[in-house]
Design a protein around this nucleic acid. Structure first.
Lengths: 203, 203
DNA sequence: CGCATAGTTGACTACGCTCAACCCTGGTGG
DNA sequence: CCACCAGGGTTGAGCGTAGTCAACTATGCG
């Protein structure tokens, strides 16, 4: 999933883009705020969240290196959610108008943007798919399968289990139990925040 | 949410596009099939579904008039899900290469496509948000709020409750009970497949 | 007329949530 | 250097709600 060819942007857009350094917890934009730009994470981690009318918070997206966010603002004129840096991050800010103007002139750019959006869609689809699995340990197992980071089946969690649980639609307790259960069943091993997924052909 | 300005497409793409009439239940493309085109529903209803490794089926999207589907194929070279017409439908087929080639030349087209994608993203986000509401009647209530079709708060279901239940992550039984419960509470009225949502300021 | 399917209702079960206590780690300050 | 504290994570007990299985009705179609 390489979305990294955004340096092939036309010079006028390149000029308009700015790099921003944000600290952990910093709010990049608020829900409802006037949308003026689209962003790409260069490194770090940014959470996109939406506050519902009842005050609950839903994490819609977690953007990491080379992923885009604030994309809703490109069409709508206000952001539909808030963007908050979870760790110190470097982000590139592309002003909305400059980007839209540059689009026609830059075919590569259009395709890159397309790829960014499809990546977001794909991620949402996967999360939705996960929610259809009722049994906690199976949902977790599938989540882990989607997040394997190397050929050995390793996954390292870079955010608190609390949040991962929420992403999965579970309470921390349930996630915890599911993990111990999977470990007891010999399907995974845990060491600190690293998990190794054992073979077990996707059945 | 008007995505209807796709008639402003450049002539060469217009020429490549074809209109297709499909019958209820017809498979437009299969999951895993080579992706050759992107589609827009002119009228009717098309379901996008994905079959997981375990054989379950997840509805990812339901495209209605003026909505697009098969968008994953624009980047990936195979479709990530199947497209099945739920009712007799008319769809416009834009060959992938023609569309991608036309993009640079047609700024309006790029923006329309952008809007189509963002609409899909928004819809997925809403469904995800719904899943975070545990209590069945509340989830249903919120679903209804999102689907009000006129100022009177009316909603008419054009597909079986069975499917709507699945979309919501419920069994038909649970949805049925939730609806009767909402009706008893005076929050909605039902007459056949039409539901009216009573005032009750979004609390 | 009969069959298949959608929808509803009931009784029981099961699984995830809630509340609570506890451990452990890292950070802070005396 | 240790005492304290806060927060994340784990474990336990009990509860509640959606799932499951089943029976029944209504509707549409052959």
């Amino acid at each position: 999933m390489d979305l990294s060819n955004l340096d092939t942007v036309p010079p006028n857009l390149q000029a308009a883009a700015t790099v921003q350094q944000v600290i952990a917890g910093q709010v990049i934009f608020q829900q409802g705020e006037a949308a003026t730009a689209f962003f790409i994470v260069q490194n770090g981690r940014v959470k996109l969240a939406r506050y519902t009318d009842e005050g609950r918070m839903v994490t819609l997206q977690v953007a990491r290196s080379r992923e885009g966010f604030g994309v809703g603002g490109l069409i709508s004129d206000t952001y539909s959610g808030a963007a908050i840096a979870e760790v110190p991050s470097q982000i590139i800010r592309y002003p909305k108008v400059a980007l839209l103007n540059a689009l026609p002139a830059a075919p590569d750019l259009a395709e890159t943007l397309l790829a960014l959006l499809l990546h977001i869609i794909r991620t949402l689809e996967i999360r939705l798919e996960l929610r259809d699995i009722r049994a906690s340990h199976q949902r977790v197992l599938r989540y882990l399968r989607y997040h394997v980071q190397d050929e050995e089946g390793r996954i390292v969690f870079d955010r608190p289990l609390k949040e991962i649980a929420a992403d999965l639609g579970f309470t921390p307790e349930t996630l915890s139990r599911a993990l111990t259960r999977l470990e007891e069943a010999g399907l995974i091993s845990r060491q600190e925040r690293q998990i190794t997924l054992h073979s077990s052909p996707a059945a």
